[in-house]
Nucleic acid binder design. Structure first.
Lengths: 343, 343
DNA sequence: TTGAAAGCGCTAACAA
DNA sequence: TTGTTAGCGCTTTCAA
């Protein structure tokens, strides 16, 4: 930068001001132009380490995910990056595999790298790490799941509406024995969707005994398969299943096939999320579409807002905002009228 | 850190030496222990910006991808992170969408962040940006694809063997009219697989006229579908297709279905990569399994090697190493004997 | 084996 | 509007 200043015939401080959008107003327009030209000519790029050291901001954001390999998350991450990069921020990813110790390690490592804040997709309903971080004043935005302590801004799909749409669709097809294979009840999504399922069934005049639920202990194909077997053992009268997400739905599909049943002829199946390639499954999966890219982008925007507010010291008390993005039922081939009606 | 030093009753320089694994040998063992204890007690984490500023290393690596949302890349990225993080390095991702301008912008942004090197999954056969960077001494490792100028260490699956396995499998089933729907010929993978296809067909005694190829202009479902229609228009006698990758195979599947043909009864189909959920397609896809996680991990290891070498100044001239990881044919339901043999 | 001191490249308070 | 100056937190050379 001293080279740039020399070439432009000014002091480095002036060069710094000219090159920095937020302070370039303080400098003579002609001078600023000269400095920018010099910078261009020398191919100058500011040293971000020096800037961070001085300003105590890294323009870097930590992103906590369970597992990038879960098809849910790549679009979320892309959304985050598309919202961050025009503002000069970069995301640092960390996969936690839903392992608390691993999460803590990675979280501390990211704090050591001076990230300015976090976007967290790994929230458990009880999450001491996050509560402590909040206490310590670390800016955090939650995406998809949230904690029971509603301390954090939160962006998610409108799960309750999505589940209601799924149930109404099945009821409309004539189903009267609808079951739910839920996600883990230690996560807000698991609880919200399960509650919405019960509520929607009740609204449709289906009593609890005709709308049972089993709990999948993880959002995985395997857990979905196990839970579905359990469900069908106990409730062979079931004609339709609402799954906690698409992976669980896929597991349910395996269970159904393993039992020699056909989907959708014998049993209808609705997923949740509309993950990539859900339309290529056998059969193509009816599911609730969640706009994951937008979820990521919106979460990033919320975090940036918060960071900007922290800049202007005299900011108003920040309330934890909730943003629920609209979802859509996508009807494909895994749902049909129940067997009784077809007979 | 000065707090830590004070608490341990030493100078900050000594504290720094004690805390840094590579210099802790220079310090009295008892003193070192005292310092580490003090650091622990105060919850000290070193400021990485200050360290980077001083050492001119960021312990950060840029990763250039076409698109994180392509199911190929999440496992590669996980592999990279798993190899980097035990060494204290962090990956910074950038999606380029195969757009040269975007790539240049993101590349420069990452250099501005002082990344110590790059892992690049976006290589084109002709890639001026990379050649220039090499000229400038930027450490770079290529993964999956490579440039025609073989300047860079490179990690990939053994594409040639994989394609040979695919062709041999089809020949073994009785196919004599086998076609290839390739990837873009501007990428090394497109060329390598196409050449291997021709060579394998020839080895099996199938002449060029019975082993035609059409070029998919991208590794996408849409491109695969278009190219397959073109192929089948020109070569209706085709009984099997080797696709350039799984996305192209999926496009081929769409084309086949659109023409009222059945897979595998009328036409067999082999993909490439064994992307996640390829076993859930309709029909489950026979494909060449590539160990993407290992690809990423190995690429990261190669880059770290290079960075370590740069540390010790008197290092020998670095030769561009090539690592080809073994692949495996996974036979599923998209391949069967040709119609003639079934009749 | 430890301490003193300088400096990495930038920004911001203050002075002119 | 620009220049002067100090210092962010660490590492490393040099001296003791």
């Amino acid at each position: 930068m001293s080279d740039v200043a020399a070439l432009a015939g000014v002091h480095t401080a002036t060069a710094s001001r000219a090159l920095n959008p937020s302070t370039s107003g303080l400098v003579n327009a002609a001078t600023a132009r000269r400095v920018r030209q010099a910078a261009e000519q020398l191919g100058f790029t500011p040293n971000s380490a020096a800037r961070s050291l001085r300003t105590n901001r890294s323009f870097t954001v930590g992103v906590l995910l369970p597992d990038l390999t879960n098809p849910l998350f790549p679009p979320v991450v892309r959304g985050i990056e598309e919202a961050l990069s025009p503002r000069g921020y970069t995301a640092l990813l960390a996969n936690t595999d839903n392992d608390e110790a691993k999460e803590r390690t990675r979280f501390d490592a990211l704090r050591g790298r001076q990230v300015d804040g976090f976007i967290v997709a790994t929230a458990q309903r009880e999450h001491p790490l996050l509560d402590q971080a909040h206490e310590a004043g670390v800016p955090i935005v939650l995406v998809n799941r949230r904690t029971d302590t509603r301390l954090f801004p939160w962006v998610a799909g409108d799960d309750a509406t999505g589940m209601a749409l799924a149930v109404e669709h099945l009821v409309g097809l004539g189903h009267r024995f609808i079951a739910h294979v839920s996600g883990p009840q230690t996560m807000s999504t698991g609880v919200t969707r399960a509650q919405a399922f019960r509520a929607a069934a009740e609204s449709a005049g289906i009593g609890p005994e005709s709308a049972p639920a089993t709990i999948g202990e993880a959002y995985t194909v395997e857990a979905g398969e196990r839970a579905t077997h359990e469900l069908l053992d106990r409730h062979p009268e079931t004609t339709a299943i609402c799954a906690g997400n698409d992976l669980i739905a896929l597991g349910a599909l395996h269970a159904v096939k393993a039992r020699g049943l056909r989907c959708p002829e014998d049993l209808s199946l609705v997923g949740f999320n509309d993950m990539q390639f859900a339309d290529e499954f056998q059969p193509p999966l009816t599911t609730v579409h969640v706009p994951h890219l937008d979820l990521g982008a919106e979460a990033a925007r919320l975090l940036l807002e918060q960071l900007d507010r922290n800049e202007e010291k005299g900011a108003p008390a920040p309330m934890a905002k909730t943003v629920l993005l609209p979802v859509l039922l996508v009807v494909r081939a895994s749902t049909a009228a129940p067997p009784a009606q077809r007979a």
